[in-house]
Design a protein around this nucleic acid. Structure first.
Lengths: 205, 205
DNA sequence: GTCTATATCAGGATAGAC
DNA sequence: GTCTATCCTGATATAGAC
């Protein structure tokens, strides 16, 4: 494999910085310094910070989507798939490299930058809704539950979990929120008794 | 009531801007221009942007906390209180003026600025956990459920709902995530049959 | 307390040589 | 494609008069 070229290094570096600091708070200078790429070279590949950000954002989406999509479309019991979705190892204190973008004023106000984010969430949502629907259809979850609502709830649990973890500077709220969602899913299991077992908290990334 | 003085106007304006753009992306210049307060006056009251931000952040926390705390500590059925908590009118596309701060790189990295945010989340969490515990103790929710987990789940649902709403530029995912949480709570109701009624989606703020 | 003027530095980009 | 030099603006203050 050839050594990573300048363009690639720029995208890689910008992706990291956007995860760490967001878009607005990341400066071209930081990208140059961390990547070791010169000024001229940078503007040769990307005419503006925004162009580089778009490429980096796309990259971050491509980094995250496959894992969730593959997990959710694999064979297996629908409830198992939801459990695995809610148990993926995550660095709670770093936040989500995709979800974080929605809180960046420059991204949220820019339809072009927001598009890959919207697309990523949409795809995960569809995959989740499909699995939830399957769970209901096969009788694993109570009839009468709404797949759309539950799918949004599960994604929101993760995204909100990051907020809590960062606020408390502690990953436990993230893990507990996810565990709470699993507990409630189990409680909504057809034929569940009152004393349904609760799952143990998720451990370290 | 006397006309609002300069100091007050500065805090008010900074609070708005931090809600709209976050801390890092808000400049002293914008505060001056929107508030109509002069440069000298501003730095007379607040020696730095950070000092002003701290006051504004405190203000934003004080704006939000009372409503949730009063709602959760009022008399009434615990499940009703949780329902009301999840049905508070919110402008989903604007995001949470407190939760958003966790995604601001300058705030998350600054323990002093993060403190009021952590405190606000902690208080809501405690109030929520108490209500959930009450629901379990009175038999309204299944025994075996964990109050801590459910409390974190509910807050995460709201905070994550904002992320989804902004990503999709549509408030419905926010409402649906909250509705999904209510559906699952109802499913975890002791003695709930399989065909528990689901609640209608929340309407407009 | 408030005003105007000034200072410093970083952000974001362009120019033109190699 | 990459480098160095340069440019302009805005962010974040400080100075000192009123």
């Amino acid at each position: 494999m050839a050594v990573m070229d300048s363009r690639e290094r720029l995208i890689e570096t910008m992706s990291e910085l956007m995860w760490e600091r967001g878009y607005a708070a990341t400066s071209p200078r930081e990208v140059r310094e961390r990547s070791g790429i010169g000024q001229g070279s940078m503007y040769h590949h990307f005419p503006s910070k925004r162009d580089l950000a778009l490429a980096a954002l796309q990259r971050n989406c491509d980094d995250l989507l496959p894992a969730s999509e593959e997990l959710l479309t694999a064979d297996g019991e629908p409830l198992d798939k939801l459990t695995r979705y809610l148990s993926q190892p995550k660095d709670a204190l770093k936040g989500c490299k995709v979800g974080r973008m929605t809180q960046d004023p420059l991204v949220a106000a820019d339809p072009v930058l927001l598009a890959p984010v919207a697309n990523a969430f949409e795809r995960v949502h569809q995959a989740l809704a499909r699995v939830v629907r399957e769970a209901i259809d096969t009788g694993a979850l109570n009839a009468g539950l709404d797949p759309e609502r539950l799918a949004y709830l599960l994604t929101a649990t993760i995204q909100g979990g990051y907020v809590l973890a960062i606020a408390h500077q502690d990953r436990r709220p993230f893990d507990q929120a996810r565990a709470g969602a699993l507990d409630l899913l189990r409680a909504a299991t057809t034929g569940s008794g009152a004393a349904e077992q609760s799952v143990p908290a998720n451990k370290e990334e």
